[in-house]
Design a protein around this nucleic acid. Structure first.
Length: 421
RNA sequence: GGGCGUGUGCCCGAGUGGUUAAAGGGGACGGGCUGUAAACCCGUUGCGUAAGCUACGAUGGUUCGAAUCCAUCCGCGCCCA
């Protein structure tokens, strides 16, 4: 993989471009090849054209979350510096399934779902990106038209050994897990996207490194200057272990209710705070470091730091007053055990009565959507989770006079409330 | 194409004819403690308010009785070609 003269170190780039490159790549993990970003910035400036910065997102789930926000934020910085983001909605690659970081094949998502997701993705991405400086492309635009002959050309561009080198495949291969030939093809298709949009730089999470390099590998075969590759860290989810993802349920969506966001942030493990301060809080690097060091040196109480973090996360997408409101509600509900405002109404009219005219309480819990079966509802009661107007329901109480339930606040656990009508 | 192996509850995994609704672990949920953190302790984790029903890839069979035995099929893997 050779660099074209465009990236060659003929003369060192001017200091201002070195500084700009450093600022733009702040917090990123890989910037490849080393030193090329400053030169690329300078060439773009000299040529008077913006760089085309590519990001591909496969719309396999309907929500954009804080994990995506990490890379989107970096792209926004490029936009603010005058460059163009090419956002690729992988409607076609989603049909293949990215094997990155996967120990199993991805479940196949059907076409309608992909299209629906693709739309919400775009919308949500624009909560961070500047639409004026974004070119949105769906990769079906070129992948759907790829003739067999063109596919052959593409497939000749990489070897099996090379593709099998990558970690995910390696692991699966050695543990005798299946790898489909289609999955093997995924990196090539993503690489071809770079050819199709003539990208100067491609961004992705660290798990994308291989795919990103494939674009760099393929572009020269199509007579293009190879793109630079920049990776951002993978944000871990609320469980503090796995990378944030919809399918693991450990994510905070950009569209989540601010009150939920506050609670979710409060529930993350302390060890996650430095990471989230740096990458999820929307703060500058120095601001984030100040908090991280404060906690480390014991000058900031972890609880205070986490509350502040929660407010910052909300303030990225909502006014400050909303963040403050979320914090107040949080305290009311979880510190003072007050009943939150705006709890749903629950009608028990449709629940069958016993001969004695009583209602079966587990069935009420099912009606509220808190249990999927009467058995599960009963277990909640027996586990002491259910309260009526704040008073714990005894494990033995399964039937109750509906008249005593009217207007009452029913609660299961700490966060599920309903007012019975 | 041939040989061998494998398929268990949300996940991993034990279980080779009867007290197995299925050990153990993880996860999840709930209770306690707390900073809704971690750690720790406790409980629950198929459906049915009960009789009972359904469940160990699928179908059929053997048996008083099957997750466990047999046959066929399907999925997955390994080896040979």
């Amino acid at each position: 993989m050779t660099d074209t003269p465009n990236d060659a170190a003929t003369t060192p780039p001017a200091d201002e471009f070195v500084a700009a490159a450093e600022a733009l790549a702040r917090g990123c993990v890989d910037v490849l090849p080393a030193g090329a970003l400053a030169r690329r910035l300078q060439h773009a400036a000299d040529a008077g054209r913006p760089l085309r910065v590519k990001l591909g997102m496969d719309p396999t789930s309907p929500d954009v979350h804080l994990g995506h926000a990490v890379v989107l934020q970096r792209l926004r910085a490029f936009q603010d510096a005058g460059h163009v983001v090419v956002l690729i909605i992988g409607d076609y690659t989603a049909r293949v399934g990215d094997p990155s970081g996967r120990s199993k094949s991805r479940p196949v998502v059907d076409g309608d779902q992909i299209d629906a997701n693709a739309r919400t993705y775009q919308e949500q991405a624009f909560r961070i990106l500047d639409p004026e400086r974004t070119e949105v492309r769906w990769n079906g635009e070129w992948l759907a038209k790829l003739t067999p002959l063109e596919m052959f050309r593409l497939m000749r561009g990489a070897t099996v050994a090379r593709v099998l080198e990558r970690d995910d495949f390696q692991k699966r291969f050695t543990s005798n897990a299946p790898i489909s030939i289609l999955e093997l093809l995924y990196p090539l298709l993503q690489g071809y996207d770079s050819v199709a949009v003539e990208s100067d730089i491609e961004f992705g999470g660290t798990d994308q490194l291989f795919n990103l390099l494939m674009g760099r590998h393929l572009q020269p075969q199509y007579g293009q200057t190879p793109q630079l590759v920049i990776t951002t860290p993978l944000l871990r989810g609320t469980d503090g272990v796995e990378k944030m993802s919809k399918s693991l349920g450990n994510y905070i969506g950009l569209d989540d209710d601010p009150n939920d966001v506050f609670g979710k942030v409060m529930s993350i493990p302390d060890e996650l705070m430095p990471e989230w301060y740096r990458y999820a809080a929307g703060l500058t690097w120095d601001e984030a470091e100040a908090y991280v060091l404060g906690v480390e040196h014991g000058t900031v109480h972890p609880n205070h730091a986490k509350r502040t973090l929660a407010r910052h996360v909300i303030e990225r997408f909502h006014p400050r007053s909303v963040a403050q409101g979320a914090e107040e509600r949080f305290d009311a509900q979880f510190k003072r055990n007050e009943v939150p405002e705006g709890i749903p109404e629950l009608s028990i009219a449709a629940i069958p009565r016993t001969e004695a005219g009583l209602v079966f309480l587990p069935a009420v819990l099912v009606a509220a959507g808190w249990a999927t079966s009467n058995g599960e509802g009963r277990r909640l009661i027996q586990g002491g989770a259910v309260r009526i107007d704040g008073t714990q329901v005894a494990a033995s109480v399964l039937e109750i006079d509906p008249a005593t339930l009217v207007g009452v606040v029913l609660q299961a656990g700490k966060r599920r409330f309903a007012r019975i009508e």
